[in-house]
C-alpha cells in the first residue's frame, strides 16, 4: 500500500509541476482524440441516420457489419493501417507512418462504428412521426434529419462521448501507428505503457489520472452543450 501511495503522490507532483513531457503527451492525446472523434462523428452519425430511417438492400448486412466492427481489436486496426502506411505499403508515399495523422486515421476507424451504431440506436428511438411530420410540413430531407437529430440529441451526444472515451483511452493504435515518439506522437496511454516499462509505477498512475480528468472534462463540456438549447 505504501508503494502505491508513495508512487502516486510523487507521480502526481511530477505530473502537475509543469513537466513538459506530461503536457505534451496530454496535448497529443487531446488533439488526436478530438480529430478522430470529429471525423468519426461526421461520417458515423449520417451513416447511423441512414441505417435507422432508410430502407435499402443490404441494410441488414451493413448493420450487422457495423455491429461486429464494434468489437474490432485495436491491434488489428493498428496492424492493417500500418500495412497501408508503411513505405512499402500502398499509401507509403504519403509518409504518414509514425505521425499524429497516422494515429488519427486508426482512431477514426475505431470510433466510426461506435458513432454509427449508437447514432442509429438513438435515431431509431425517436418517434418515426417526428420525421414524417417534418417532411409533410414541407421540410427538406436535410431539415427533417436535423429535426430528428434534435430529438435524439441525448443519445447522439452519448454516442460521440463514447467514441471520444474509446479513442482517448486506447493504446494499441497509438503505439503501432505513432511509434511513441516523445513530444510528437507520445500520448498519455503510450507514455503510461513506457513508464511501466521503466518501473515508474507512480508516474504512470499520475498520467492515468490526467487522462481520466480529460475524459471527465470533455464529458461535462458536452453536457453543458446538451443543455444550452
Amino acid at each position: 500500500m505504501e508503494f502505491l501511495l508513495e508512487g502516486f503522490s510523487e507521480g502526481l507532483r511530477r505530473a502537475l509541476t509543469g513537466d513538459p513531457e506530461v503536457w505534451q503527451a496530454a496535448w497529443v492525446t487531446v488533439e488526436v482524440s478530438l480529430w478522430a472523434t470529429l471525423l468519426a462523428t461526421l461520417l458515423g452519425l449520417p451513416a447511423g441516420y441512414l441505417l435507422a430511417v432508410a430502407r435499402f438492400r443490404g441494410r441488414g448486412f451493413a448493420l450487422g457489419l457495423f455491429q461486429s466492427l464494434l468489437g474490432l481489436p485495436t491491434v488489428v486496426i493498428g496492424l492493417l493501417v500500418y500495412g497501408f502506411l508503411s513505405r512499402r505499403g500502398p499509401l507509403g508515399e504519403a509518409a504518414l507512418l509514425f505521425s499524429p495523422p497516422a494515429i488519427v486515421i486508426g482512431l477514426t476507424i475505431l470510433a466510426f462504428p461506435i458513432a454509427a451504431v449508437y447514432g442509429m440506436a438513438s435515431v431509431a428511438a425517436v418517434d418515426a412521426r417526428a420525421r414524417e411530420t417534418a417532411l409533410t410540413l414541407g421540410a427538406s430531407p436535410g431539415r427533417a434529419a436535423w429535426a430528428v437529430f434534435r430529438e435524439a440529441r441525448f443519445g447522439l451526444v452519448a454516442a460521440v462521448l463514447g467514441a471520444f472515451g474509446r479513442v482517448s483511452s486506447e493504446v494499441g493504435i497509438a503505439m503501432m501507428l505513432g511509434g511513441n515518439i516523445e513530444g510528437y506522437t507520445r500520448t498519455l496511454t503510450t507514455a503510461i505503457a513506457l513508464e511501466s516499462m521503466k518501473g515508474e509505477f507512480g508516474f504512470g498512475v499520475a498520467l492515468g489520472t490526467i487522462l481520466m480528468a480529460i475524459v471527465i472534462a470533455v464529458s461535462f463540456a458536452a453536457r453543458a452543450l446538451q443543455r444550452s438549447s
Binding site: S86, R87, G179, N180, I181
Partner: peptide, 19 residues
C-alpha cells in the same frame, strides 16, 4: 523522433524505409 523497439524490429523499420 525516437522509436524504441527491439533490434530486430528496428532493422525491419529501416529495411521498410520507415525510419
Amino acid at each position: 523522433g525516437t522509436i524504441a523497439v527491439g533490434t530486430g524490429q528496428a532493422l525491419r523499420l529501416g529495411r521498410n524505409g520507415d525510419v
